[in-house]
Design a binder for these strands. Structure first.
Lengths: 249, 249
DNA sequence: TTTAAAACAGCAAAAAACAGCATATTTAAG
DNA sequence: CTTAAATATGCTGTTTTTTGCTGTTTTAAA
């Protein structure tokens, strides 16, 4: 089989499924994994697809808004997003954090509203830009290659100058004792500045993350006005939070 | 068998199957591999097919570019990008403007380099983030829904604090008399701040835009160190620029 | 942290491409 | 018709490309 034939087949496959595993291509093309790897690498070099560990993804898709059907616990996050949107009203100035939960919220915000939204997440920004009446303010900084999120000193400085009605944030970990925490120092710093800038902070968090903590604390629970999970506020998983000065939804 | 006969058969085969292997043609035509090779090479020279290692493919078959094929004057822009990259060296701190020419430059920058790149364009940033050794610094601001570019006061203020080795910028319009100009006021303001922040400004511009101007002037030509077009520096289209204090490439 | 999979670098065999040469075939001119 | 020149074809030896395999390093996930 000609190399260009293989390339064609690979591109078709990527186009169709948005992503392929190298092993699948090995089967499909009857060549060694090394050949497939080299093919994919070459196509990546020509910007016809994007090579990732173990496979390849299509470019349009590599725009990195994570593929919706691959988001972990999507249903829970949609549910959280719905509740969160119930707290927003037209004309406000809000902040949306990165992460798939906030991305889901950005997707679900009513397109017919007029809203000014700050964010430091490229996927969130791209989602919001689809809504013609929104003003999207991007907080610049050093972009993280993994999350496509602006962080670092520049970002923190910009946040320090802001005054927001409401900030919707995610977190890596949260429990009643330690508050919010992160596994990455930079991320924790961002959350801190964010919470400073907002009159009211709303934490969006799937119940799975509740009652866990990690090394870098970003904020104590008393700075959080509202905690939204996909569970009912009375759910037993949330019992550690039910007696706090915290609006549980 | 006549040569033209063989050519006909080869082209038919390519048309029918989109691809052929030279060895199959050897069988089919009863001639040596060298002859087939020479035939195919000749047809490639006449742009009737594309020769690849081990065979040939039909012209339509080889090209496959879902997004990029919609870029206007892509070839010229690629050419410009190549010239521009020749001016960059590893370890520098540079700025990349938005626009398809700069995007093409971002694509073509060597992935193995280590480089810190500032930009205010989301597409450019996403492209650069694919290169693992690059540091991408995003200039935040109000995002334009059309161009996915950060602009406005916040962006200008961030630019004012920067000191860059080199800025690669595009422009809406340029001529020898009026310098650089834009049709949108906001854009012109951005370019102004940009040029202030850079020790050296390089203008990337397809020749088509040369010798045109519009309402909002962003910069006079003496602030531009280098002008890169896809044409030869001696080309008559550029005659108005050849006597200026301007590095023409 | 550990562990399995994936990526990578380098090597070697096979196939293809290439350059140069010799032979054959066609063309054109005398 | 003959001959010289141009062209076409096949062959030889060399170089390049492709491909699979080895062992090692890196990456991602448990």
């Amino acid at each position: 089989m000609l190399k260009s034939e293989r390339h064609q087949i690979i591109l078709k496959e990527v186009e169709k499924r948005n992503r392929v595993q190298l092993q699948d291509l090995v089967q499909r093309l009857n060549v060694s994994i090394d050949t497939v790897r080299r093919d994919v690498k070459e196509l990546d070099g020509e910007h016809k697809l994007r090579k990732v560990h173990g496979g390849a993804v299509s470019l349009g898709f590599a725009s990195f808004s994570p593929q919706r059907n691959s988001i972990y616990a999507l249903e829970a996050k949609t549910h959280i997003a719905e509740k969160a949107i119930g707290m927003v009203s037209e004309g406000q100035v809000i902040f949306l954090d990165g992460g798939t939960t906030c991305l889901e919220m950005a997707r679900s915000l009513p397109a017919e509203w007029e809203l000014k939204v700050f964010t430091h997440s490229i996927p969130v920004a791209l989602e919001l830009l689809q809504k013609p009446r929104y003003t999207v303010e991007f907080i610049g900084g050093t972009l993280s290659p993994e999350s496509h999120l602006a962080q670092g000193i520049a970002a923190v400085r910009q946040l320090a100058e802001l005054h927001l009605d409401m900030a919707f944030i995610g977190t890596g970990y949260v429990d009643a004792e330690h508050g919010l925490s992160e596994s990455v120092w930079e991320t924790a710093q961002m959350k801190k500045s964010l919470i400073e800038a907002a009159r009211k902070t709303v934490l969006l968090c799937i119940s799975e993350k509740v009652n866990s903590h990690h090394r870098f604390r970003s904020c104590s629970l008393d700075r959080i006005a509202t905690l939204i999970t996909e569970k009912d506020p009375g759910d037993s998983e949330l019992k550690n939070f039910q007696n706090l000065q915290l609006d549980l939804r």
